Amino acid sequence: MRAEFPELARHYYRANRLWSASYFAGSVGGAPLTVLRQYIEQQNRPV
């Protein structure tokens, strides 16, 4: 992934990994995919 997305390296150079050891599980209660996609796209992204 580092070869394909070199811009990621500057965000994770100290930990030397892309993901943390955290875990997430969630449910959307049958919401349509279009609604979920819109929600995700409107979330703030880290700088």
Rank of each mutant, 00 (worst) to 15 (best):
P6V: 01
Q43I: 02
Q43F: 03
T34V: 10
I40G: 12
A15N: 13
N44A: 15
S27W: 05
Y23Q: 09
E41I: 03
V47Y: 14
N16W: 10
A3D: 13
S20K: 15
R2L: 10
A15T: 08
I40Y: 12
E7S: 06
A31P: 03
Q43E: 12
Q42T: 11
H11D: 07
R10H: 11
E41F: 13
L33N: 04
A31S: 11
Y23E: 13
I40F: 06
P6L: 00
S22K: 10
Y13M: 14
R2M: 06
V28L: 10
Y13C: 13
Y39G: 01
A9C: 07
E7C: 08
R45N: 10
H11V: 08
R17I: 06
L8R: 13
V28F: 08
W19A: 06
T34F: 14
R2Y: 04
R37L: 08
R17M: 02
Y13K: 15
L18D: 06
E41G: 00
A21I: 09
G30M: 03
R10N: 07
A31M: 13
N44G: 14
L18K: 08
Q42Y: 12
I40W: 15
M1Q: 04
A15H: 05
S20N: 12
S20E: 08
M1Y: 02
R17A: 05
G29Q: 03
S27H: 12
A31F: 01
T34K: 12
P46A: 01
E7T: 05
G30K: 14
R10C: 02
G30C: 04
L8T: 10
Q43A: 05
Y39C: 01
P32Q: 00
G26K: 04
R2H: 10
P32E: 03
P32D: 01
R14F: 00
G29E: 02
L36R: 15
H11K: 14
G30A: 12
P6I: 02
A25C: 05
F5Q: 05
V47I: 14
Y13P: 06
S22N: 08
Q38I: 09
S27R: 14
L36M: 15
L33A: 11
V28Q: 02
W19R: 07
P46R: 01
A9Y: 04
Y13H: 14
R10Y: 10
Y12G: 02
W19Q: 07
V28G: 06
G26R: 04
S20M: 13
S22V: 07
A31V: 09
W19P: 03
L18F: 08
S20T: 14
A31Y: 04
G30I: 09
R10T: 05
F5E: 07
A21F: 10
P6R: 02
F24Y: 04
H11Y: 11
V47S: 11
R2F: 03
E41V: 00
Y12N: 10
E7A: 01
R37K: 07
F5V: 05
S22I: 07
T34L: 03
M1N: 04
T34Q: 11
Q38L: 13
P6M: 00
N16K: 14
S27V: 10
W19S: 04
Q42L: 13
M1A: 01
N16R: 15
